[in-house]
Every structure is written in C-alpha cells, then in structure tokens.
Design a protein around this nucleic acid. Structure first.
Ligand code: ZN
Ligand code: ZN
Ligand code: ZN
Ligand code: ZN
Lengths: 165, 165
DNA sequence: CCTTGACTGTTATGATATAACGTTAGATAG
DNA sequence: CTATCTAACGTTATATCATAACAGTCAAGG
C-alpha cells in the first residue's frame, strides 16, 4: 500500500458522521428520482463510503473500499461514481486535496465553500451565500459570466486552534 | 508530444501579455531583494515564460520550454521554480487547471480570485477584497481560523460571451 | 583553503485521472 | 414476451501531474 486511507483520519469533535447519513441517503434517493437519474448500487455505496468517512477521500481510497466489496477494481469505477455524485449535487470535489466529500446539505441547491483544517484534514462545508454574492460582483465588474466557482479555505478548525504548538 | 502547449492558446482580446512584462519582472527582482531570496536564472526565466503565456501553463509546459533553453529536463526543475514563484507571490497556482500563472499584481500583498473562461481557457486575476471579507465572515461564524484560500470561478469571459453557439 | 548551505540537475517512482472497448442490465417499442 | 436500444459497468492500457532521494556546483564566510 502506498499511503492511502489516512486522509482526514479523526476530525475535529463534530463531523457529519453517520448520525444523519441515513437521512442524507434518503435525500439522495429522492433527488435522483427528481432528476430522473439512477442511484445505482455502486453510486449509492460510494455515497455511503463518503458519508462514513471523517474527512474527504481520494478516488483511490474509495476504489479500495469498493473493490473489497465486489465492485470493480479499476480507477474508472470510482471516478465514474464520484463524478456522478458531484454532477448531481450529492458530493463535492475538493481540488486542493484531490479528494471528494459527501455533500452535507444535499437538499438546497447551494454553492458551497469548504474550510480545510491543516492540522486534522477535516473538511467543513460552509454556507457561501455572501461569498458567492461578492464573487458575482467581482465577476460582473469585469464582464465575466460566472457559472460556478471553487472556494476552498485553508486554516485551523476550532478544535485544532487550541492544540497548536 | 502528448498534448501540451495548447492550454490557454489565444485569449480574449486583452491579456496581461508582454506589455507590462518588464515592469512585473522588475517588481519581482525588487521583491526578491526585499525578502532576501534569489531570483536565479531558472526562476527568472520561468517567470518570463509565464508572463509570455496567454493563459496558465502546466508545469510540464514550462519544463518543455526550460529544457530547450538548456535548463534541466526533469520535472523537479519546473516544479521547484514554480513553487518558488508561488511562495514568493510572483505567481499563482490554478488548481482547477493544474497550472500556474504569473501574478498580475505582484506588488500588493493580495489574495486573488481567478476567473477562468471555459471557452478560451484564459485566466484573469481579479481583485478579491470583497470575496475574502465574506469568506472571513463565514469562517468566523464557525470558529475557523482562516489562513489562505483558493477562489476560482469558471464561466465565460467577456469576449467569449458573444461567440457562443 | 575548506566548510557550509542554497541551488541545480538527475534517476526513479508515486499519485491522480482518463481513453477506449467489450459486456451487462434496464428501459422501451412492437 | 421478445427485440432493440442505451446507460451503466468493468476491464486494459495509458496519460498526466507531482515528489523523494541523491549527487554535483558554486558562492559566501571562516
Ligand atoms: Zn454541499
Ligand atoms: Zn482541525
Ligand atoms: Zn496575483
Ligand atoms: Zn474566453
């Protein structure tokens, strides 16, 4: 093994965890029906894997788990499922980490921002209404037609601020 | 050749271009002296290459150019120079494109946002004061100590909006 | 001179992502 | 119910992006 699986080991006190995982899965099912797309077994299982993870998972981390459960063993299996989830608003891609995370608020058609803790690798999905408004204004100012945006902040989560050296 | 060199072919009417390239290089020299770091030949040439490019360049694009000019031929040569430039505020990394671009405003100690055109791949560095303020507010709201952020918007630049199908 | 440390270049490898193709399984039309 | 069509799957193979580790160079300081 190379060095997978470590990403986002134990995160800061409260995380989306499995408490509301079932609720989110239900929302995903509903959303899939609404949009007339299929939440197939691999896709559903991939979402569950993301929900169970504490932090964001790399595609190869997800693949490893899928493989042992009898799904495909090759990268496209994971990438396809992950891309499906992202395209359908059930997960997000965290570019800075080359990783993916389940959407914490799949109901709203939101544009989220992510707060990435440098110490514990936890990823928090934050409401980004104000940020997007400001970004829209900046884009308008130069005549840019904004479609979507990646907003990723790096710093220390509340729990890790106490623990600094 | 694989498919390098195409990224950011011809961009939308106005770009940072070579007009102010000399001025930016001078600023970079000054900045290097200030910070007591060395803008060595590879580093300087790398910055020039970024300045001459219309869009953002991948590390391997930069490497290709460095190689024909007698600098090293292996990836670390490019990555080291690029990382130096980024760390010293002379260039930015565009994560969505796995690419790098010269900083358009190297004097100010800014936190920039980038507007990436889907049609022509041009990358514009926008002032992000308002966006960062909003992001700070969102981070504060959940007790996150924000250090730095990646803000990358995708859409159509002004020039490409007319040219749509 | 000789050490030291920053910089450069190399080899080798690791990590992330997609292209292309044959097969399977769900839906649809007859 | 079957024929047909298409989305989804899984595979092989390959592309693309990035870094670890080490050796040689060179200028600054003792
Ligand atoms: Zn979300
Ligand atoms: Zn933390
Ligand atoms: Zn800049
Ligand atoms: Zn454009």
């Amino acid at each position: 093994m190379t060095e997978h699986a470590g990403r986002g080991g134990f995160c800061c006190s409260s995380h989306s965890g499995t408490e509301n995982a079932q609720a989110i899965l239900d929302l995903a099912e509903a959303r899939a029906k609404d949009r007339n797309v299929r939440l197939t077994p691999v896709r559903r299982r991939t979402l569950e894997i993301l929900l169970q993870a504490h932090g964001a998972l790399g595609a190869y981390d997800v693949l490893e788990r899928l493989a042992v459960e009898g799904f495909g063993t090759q990268p496209p299996v994971a990438y396809r499922a992950l891309n499906f989830l992202v395209e359908n608003g059930m997960a997000h891609r965290i570019r800075r980490l080359n990783a993916f995370t389940a959407c914490a608020h799949p109901a709203e058609d939101h544009r989220a921002a992510f707060l990435i803790c440098e110490a514990c690798d936890s990823v928090t999905e934050a409401a980004a209404g104000g940020v997007n408004a400001a970004l829209n204004a900046a884009a308008d100012a130069v005549g840019f037609a904004l479609d979507r945006a990646t907003i990723e902040a790096v710093g220390l989560c509340r729990a890790c601020q106490g623990a600094q050296a």
